[in-house]
Nucleic acid binder design. Structure first.
Lengths: 210, 210, 210, 210
DNA sequence: GATGAATGAGGATTCATTCAT
DNA sequence: TATGAATGAATCCTCATTCAT
């Protein structure tokens, strides 16, 4: 009812409904109704369904990225940043499951039927964050110098992604998950193989020989 | 026109369209048209849109799981199974992008708008495969005994998932990606820290002290 | 209610409504309602409003042209054909005012807002009829040989058009209008100017001196 | 932006749009947008769509009639007035096709959907002009005394109307069209029939015997 | 097994218009 | 005077689905 809140209310309702039902299964009328706004009012502010969708996603994506960046930059050491990164992603999913689902949907959902989102992927947008983390890790001597940036990204974003999806699907997530990610990533799962330092035909656990 | 043909054509068209546009944005008529079948014929075979969707997903999921299992069981050692697992997932995405996208959509997409898929997640259905791999890895002495199953799963499924999504999004995937996953998983990214064996306030790279 | 009459009923209702209200001011729902048909049924048969409009016009145009041609070919002499032509056009307007109005609207109405009709003009489509009439008139010695086809067309179609519009607008049309058209066309309105046979500076009533 | 400006701009935009798309297919918002004016501003000046339409038509009609009258009264002889009449009508169509189309639309277009224009027909409004021309023509001895006013009107307005429509439809119009109208109207198209002065069963070219 | 035809409900979007400012 | 914002009603059209044949 208040003045220009209408726009915000619509955006928030759109976020929730698009996340819960997807683009194609969400009707503009439902969004308007949920926002307590008439149909033409929605159109006055957003032009059409697609623009509304894109704006909702843009907002969610910005919030997500900000949270990740804030969490990481609030941690001092590489180890803490690793934990902060995963923790921030999980807490985001926990606090804003609708937004999280919307982002997952927009990034991994269908392409032609729904408006294509400009963010290639918010995971890739946050890749800058990861790259800076890796640099710092190497500076601190916590990451081996020869480790490639992409390999770190692969493990880190993969672990966070899987955990986020699990959370969304309702699986419980142990409290120490971020720490375990950090530990496993750093130490690996392989056995030390002092008895077989040169490799033995099987590709070794050391740096790829290629 | 023959009996079996129509059904298959519809299923294949449904797969492609649901994958490309999502459930809510795909119309039954579009599927029928793409399959070269009249509308009532489609309904004769599948009952309604939801059943068609579920059957399409069930088929895709079965094909996916079979491929993964076949690939893993075709590899002998733990190391090769690791590579085979990732490779199979990537080749599946490459060969059947529509199916892959459909599975991603069904697993990570919205809940209320679309029919809920019975497979909680094909990643979790294939968890059995991963668990057996871990057991073998420990048997072979390639995986440290104290490493937890879930941690392996976390890294492995995460890495494969991220790579699959990147592929779907059109990013190139280096040919040695599976090997790098294996190496990085086994060895970790952390530096050996002989100079700091006891930890120094920062949580160490060893098994979590907690 | 009867079987495939639906299509015909829709066409006829569309004809009447488009004629009475114009394309932009006629709603598809009104047409469906007037035809005793549901909205999707209308769309099943005609695809969209534009196709419906075009088909209605095509039908009306065909009927009109047929009537004109039949009337003219049913008259033997040039003089009778002249009368038949005008009479047929007037009787068409009298019997099917809706159709006539629709044709007038389609031919002389707006261009961009409404679908453009393929018939450049039904007057021009019937030009063939007029041309044949002129040829016959010259053959009969009723039309001066040097008279141009276009000039006859100009007078004849003009006279018929004006009369048709007047009829549509509600003005009464004297019964002898067709005969008067014939007489005036043949004889002209000019005075014989035997006292000024060579012309006198004013452009003469004879064949253009140019 | 100034007072008077806005009103004129709206009127001119309305003229163009109503002419191009018709009343029902033209939206008030489109007119406002084309005029560079906000929606309520338009309503402030014109009250509603219908008033805007009527005012646009009134303006166009006035301009048209003025031009015809000025052209005709600027010519001295009957012959020249004939030519001036046709020429003025054609030049109006050429210079203001939008206005011309709007007038044609308003005069010959649908009735119920659009506001009914008060001018029964601008052709009839200009009938006074034609009647005076005929009187002068008889005074000059150029028009036979027994010719009826309506018959002249029929030929003259018909010829001008047909030519105007052809022009609007994009057909080229020969430069000597007005002269040919004059010549053909005066002289007629019929052959002199000295060999058959009494008529022979076919209605003659002379004044109707009835 | 397959189809042409039909339908009630609802899809996104725009309409002419108004009101508080 | 002019405007940003709002609205009830209507726009064209499509939805998933069914029925008689």
């Amino acid at each position: 009812m208040s003045d220009h809140d209408a726009r915000e209310r619509v955006l928030s309702a759109a976020l929730a409904l698009f996340a819960a039902r997807g683009f194609g299964s969400t009707s503009v009328r439902d969004v308007a109704r949920a926002a307590g706004v008439t149909n033409p009012t929605l159109y006055y502010h957003f032009g059409n369904k697609e623009c509304l969708y894109l704006e909702a996603i843009a907002g969610a994506s910005a919030r997500f990225t900000e949270r990740i960046e804030a969490a990481v930059s609030g941690a001092a050491t590489f180890d803490d940043k690793l934990i902060a990164y995963v923790e921030a992603q999980l807490s985001y999913v926990r606090e804003f499951p609708a937004e999280a689902r919307l982002l997952a949907y927009a990034n991994h959902g269908p392409l032609q039927g729904d408006p294509s989102v400009d963010l290639m992927s918010h995971h890739l947008r946050s890749s800058q964050v990861v790259l800076e983390m890796v640099a710092q890790g190497k500076g601190e001597g916590r990451v081996r110098p020869e480790v490639r940036d992409e390999d770190v990204m692969m493990l880190l974003t993969g672990s966070a992604l899987v955990a986020g999806f699990a959370l969304l699907a309702g699986y419980p997530m142990p409290a120490d998950y971020p720490e375990r990610v950090r530990d496993t990533m750093l130490r690996g799962i392989g056995a030390e193989t002092p008895s077989n330092p040169t490799g033995s035909g099987r590709a070794g656990a050391g740096p790829s020989e290629g």
